[in-house]
Amino acid sequence: MSQMNMIQAINSALDVVMEKDPTVIILGEDVGYFGGVFRCTDGLQAKYGEHRVIDAPIAEGGIIGSAIGIGVNGLRPVAEIQFADYIYPGLDQIISELARLRYRSGGEYFSPVTIRAPCGGGIRGGQTHSQSPEALFTHLSGVKTVMPSSPYDAKGLLISAIESNDPVIFFEPKRIYNGPFDGDPNKPATPWSKHPAGEVPDGYYSIPLGEAAVVEEGDELSIITYGTMVHVAQAAVRNAGVKADIIDVRTLVPLDVETLTRSVKKTGRCLIAHEASRFSGYGAELSATIQEECFWHLEAPIERVAGWETPYPHAFEWDYFPGQDRILAGIRSIMEAV
């Protein structure tokens, strides 16, 4: 075991998988000699060579398109998109090709591409470095979508993603790369070394895709969330003094419906929180699923806390970000409902 932040855990996952499987290669902007703008691939080119950790031209569509071809030829590519906000030039390749290849070829062709992309706000990144576009990818049929909330989960889930023969979009909430963030930007940053999920095995382990985690248990309320918001929700619950199940979805597709509904059937109250804007956000799907599965157990309307329906603003970052205050307001509203 070692103390790792999420960057080190991701680096360790890549290292462990590359060591174990010589077909795994990395492709992306600045990932090679430099080791990535967030340092996630630091040292890997020196260790595995230029043929396995490849610096790419600034062309996300080309990175994803060529990764698909590389995967078809028996290698296992991990493509890094430097910011999730830059993934859009590659959307056609993801939607029309990567997600559909197995299906359209009657199961004869597939390409096991993993696409890593740092996402989310809270870093003063404005609208081009703060987005949470995960909902787009959950609508595709054919790609899995993952977002971890800790170093331990990041490593275990990334290893599973790379080993999966299905394509996986792996979002990394960059605000919590260096430490858990409770939503208060005025407090000093907390490092992962103070958090139990910052203890990460050095070697190989994996966390299956498709399993949510109950990170806190309580019987008054269920909070369903993922990414950075897991930590914001934990802080809000502490301040609210309610006993809540906090469920980290972890894998958005395929969704672990069972864990979610078991909790809501127990508590009868459900709050859904994510950074991405609310309308047609992933929370809408969660809310609909809970309503369909748990309607007769609900004691209050399902509450959603999410980003406003504006582009991510630079100056108003902390008004946009669904911080503790908004979660607390949501909790009050849901607990007061009769």
């Binding site: 396995r52 080309g62 398109g65 290698l75 029309s96 090709e97």
Partner: peptide
């Protein structure tokens, strides 16, 4: 979809060279 197979061919060829 048009031309989507073009980068696939290049990626496939890159993998051939890598191997």
């Amino acid at each position: 979809n048009l031309a989507t197979q073009y980068p696939h061919a290049v990626g496939w060829a890159m993998a051939s060279a890598i191997k």
